Amino acid sequence: MKLAITHTLLYDYSNDVRLEPHYLYLHPKQGPYLKVDQYSLQISPTPDFISKNVDSADNIQHIVFFNNSTRHLSIKAESIIEVTEFNPYSFIYHPFESSRLPIKYANDLNDSLQSYLNRKGVTTYVDQTARQIAASVNWDTSSFLSELNKFIHSFAYEIREEGDAYSPEKTLLERRGSCRDYSVLFMAMCRALGIASKFVSGYYFSDPNQPQYLHAWVNVYLPGGGWRGYDPTQNCLVSGRHIPLATSAMPNLISPIHGTFRGSAQSVFKAEVSVRKIEE
């Protein structure tokens, strides 16, 4: 399936400002089921320099440098990609003991996954709730992940385009949040039971006639299955309709745009996302 993606970000400032370097994560992340055919980046005011890098988590990162003052910042990222749908259940746990919780990774693998096992945000309440869900499915790993998806999906969903994700406990206590809040809670509850997990920022292709936004979900590392995606917002497994931009153990590191400005001004932010299928 071929998709055309347009992501526009607009900032208007009440006075002239000088833009500090801005970090962008707007390039689709290639993988076995995703190929990038075209990509373009349009920025106004015209940057003095753009550095294209691969960051510490193998994401494509652009760092944009500006010299002159401005009252606006406009960024448009356009891409054409090809995605292949796949069966997310097509794997066998190996070693088979990993099909039961808590997961214990082999020593070398455990060392390599440490940043994805960090228990920051795993409070007593988060840990106990995770264990209650696991016990309800007899500590079966796949069943726990599916039940966790369903549990968080039942919360009150809200659209919040700016700001950091809520803490896992806040989302759990209030039973509400955005897709990134759901994902951060999902990660914490997985890590409570020894499942390595990372945050994914990207897009989800569903009904092109509905409003579209930046999306977030979670990848978990399953022995024998590698990284597998779970989306508590949609209550589904990732199977070819999710388009990742970046992944990280720490969600705040991969915001689609991150930067500051110098000057005394108020800013107004607007974002638009379009993902549409190209008929072949």
Rank of each mutant, 00 (worst) to 15 (best):
M1Q: 07
A4K: 12
Y11F: 00
R18Y: 07
L19I: 04
Y23R: 12
L26T: 08
P28W: 01
S40R: 04
P45W: 03
D48Q: 12
D48S: 13
D48Y: 07
K52Q: 15
N53C: 08
D55P: 14
S56Q: 13
D58I: 00
D58Y: 05
N59A: 06
I60G: 00
I60H: 11
Q61N: 03
Q61T: 05
I63A: 11
V64H: 03
F65I: 01
F65W: 06
F66L: 02
T70F: 10
T70N: 12
H72F: 15
S74T: 10
A77D: 01
E78Y: 01
E78M: 03
S79E: 02
I80T: 02
I81L: 03
E85P: 06
E85A: 04
F86K: 05
F86L: 07
N87C: 05
N87Y: 02
P88H: 10
F91K: 00
F91Y: 15
I92N: 07
I92E: 07
P95W: 11
P95C: 13
S98Q: 04
S99T: 05
R100Y: 15
I103A: 06
I103F: 08
I103D: 09
Y105P: 11
D108K: 08
D108H: 07
S112C: 00
S115T: 14
S115L: 12
K120M: 12
K120S: 15
Y125T: 10
A130T: 02
R131Q: 15
I133K: 01
I133H: 03
A135D: 15
A135W: 06
S136L: 12
S136D: 15
N138G: 06
W139T: 10
D140T: 04
S143R: 15
F144E: 12
E147I: 05
E147W: 04
L148S: 03
N149A: 07
I152T: 06
H153W: 05
A156E: 14
E161A: 07
A165S: 10
Y166M: 13
E169H: 07
L172C: 04
E174H: 07
E174L: 09
E174D: 05
R176K: 11
S178E: 00
R180S: 02
D181V: 05
D181H: 04
D181G: 02
Y182V: 00
A188P: 01
C190G: 09
C190E: 09
R191A: 03
L193I: 08
L193A: 12
G194N: 10
I195Y: 03
A196K: 03
V200Q: 09
S201C: 12
Y203P: 14
Y204D: 03
Y204M: 13
F205W: 13
F205A: 13
P211M: 04
Q212H: 05
A216C: 15
V218A: 01
N219D: 15
N219G: 01
N219A: 09
G225Y: 08
G226T: 06
W227I: 00
Y230Q: 00
P232F: 01
N235P: 02
S239Q: 14
S239W: 04
I243Y: 07
A246H: 08
T247D: 02
M250S: 14
N252I: 09
N252K: 14
S255E: 14
I257W: 05
G259L: 04
T260S: 09
F261Y: 15
F261V: 03
G263A: 04
S264L: 09
Q266P: 02
Q266C: 00
S267N: 07
E272L: 08
V275W: 08
I278S: 01
I278H: 02
